[in-house]
């Protein structure tokens, strides 16, 4: 997550954004990803760059695979993951490919449905935190002045709050529920995004095409969302995809503490349940753990690949 893109903008140093305010003429232009033809051209450029990296394509593949699993879970999963369908502790075999757990539930079905929770929490939390971060960062960076100062103090406050501790506390006290978990993760994850977007805006708002728009009397929201934001988008997409990985890990951590939603089968919850059987039923912790690991790995690879393709100057060669 904190690789090149955000490393430069996290600290409150004066040259924050120096690195991230990329100046690649291939992508950053007035009007951003303007016309259809231009979009098509840029997408082709993007894909050429992206597909050059095997690991990026692998990451995309993994993410695609788990997303697909999520969408077709109901058909793919052999059983209802909450149903007691067999004897407990059957080791993996032809009948139950990933074995059964301590209550006699099918582990494969649990892993399939668990992908749903992880991905849903990951996407929703990252999307929400991205949205908050973009709005705060855009307003802060574009308007500057007192608004900026106030919003940045707020951002700082959220950044020094111990994130995981607070998530633990809130979920423990408010009771588990997937909505609450998404909300808590989102509300605690937006500051880095806000800083990133602010830094982009700080550098972009001084650019010629923005000044031109301003001179033409274009309304501020239009400038923010139509002129500047599309140019900041590559960084946002990269950071957002890495945020998904973080949100998945955070949800797994909460569930590992037994704070997941007991009405949903999740990987973290399965791991928590497997704690007692680490030595007697190796398949119980192994597969959900692997699920988390692979999904997070997939999003990290994808994020790296996007980073290389969208911000070529920062490419880690």
């Amino acid at each position: 997550m904190l690789f090149s893109t955000r490393a430069s903008v996290t600290s409150d140093t004066p040259q924050g954004g120096q690195l991230a305010g990329a100046e690649d003429p291939g992508i950053h232009e007035k009007g951003g990803w303007g016309t259809d033809r231009a979009v098509g051209r840029r997408l082709r450029v993007f894909w050429r760059r992206f597909s050059r990296s095997r690991s990026a394509v692998l990451g995309l593949g993994v993410v695609f695979f788990f997303t697909l699993v999520t969408l077709v879970a109901t058909w793919v999963a052999p059983h209802d993951p909450t149903a007691l369908i067999a004897q407990p502790f059957i080791s993996p075999g032809p009948r139950y490919p990933l074995g059964t757990d301590n209550l006699g539930r099918d582990v494969l079905s649990g892993v399939v449905y668990g992908a749903r929770v992880s991905l849903a929490v990951g996407f929703l939390a990252a999307a929400t935190s991205t949205l908050i971060g973009v709005i705060v960062g855009a307003i802060s960076g574009y308007l500057g002045g007192v608004t900026d100062a106030l919003l940045m103090r707020l951002t700082e406050l959220f950044q020094v709050l111990p994130r995981f501790f607070l998530a633990l506390l809130v979920v423990a006290l408010a009771g588990p529920g997937i909505g609450k978990i998404v909300f808590v993760i989102a509300i605690l994850s937006w500051p880095p995004m806000a800083r990133l977007v602010r830094a982009e805006f700080l550098s972009l708002r001084e650019r010629e095409f923005v000044e031109a728009a301003r001179a033409l009397g274009v309304a501020t929201p239009t400038i923010i969302f139509r002129d500047i934001l599309p140019n900041a988008l590559p960084s946002v997409i990269v950071a957002g995809s890495l945020d998904i990985a973080q949100a998945i890990l955070l949800e797994a951590g909460l569930s590992f503490f037994g704070l997941g939603d007991p009405n949903l089968t999740s990987w973290g919850g399965m791991l928590n349940n497997a704690l007692a059987f680490l030595r007697t039923a190796w398949w119980m912790p192994t597969f959900p753990g692997l699920g988390i690991f692979l999904t997070v790995l997939g999003f990290n690879l994808l994020g790296d690949g996007l980073n290389d393709a969208l911000n070529p100057r920062l490419r880690s060669r």
């Binding site: 590992f256 704690l275 030595r279 912790p285 753990g289 690991f293 997070v296 790995l297 990290n300």
Partner: peptide
């Protein structure tokens, strides 16, 4: 580095404990 960055820390801890202690 990629693996280290993606592996959940509690899962890793358990694996380490199982291998090196138990």
């Amino acid at each position: 580095a990629l693996i280290g960055f993606s592996v959940p820390v509690f899962w890793l801890g358990q694996l380490l404990m199982l291998i090196f202690s138990v």
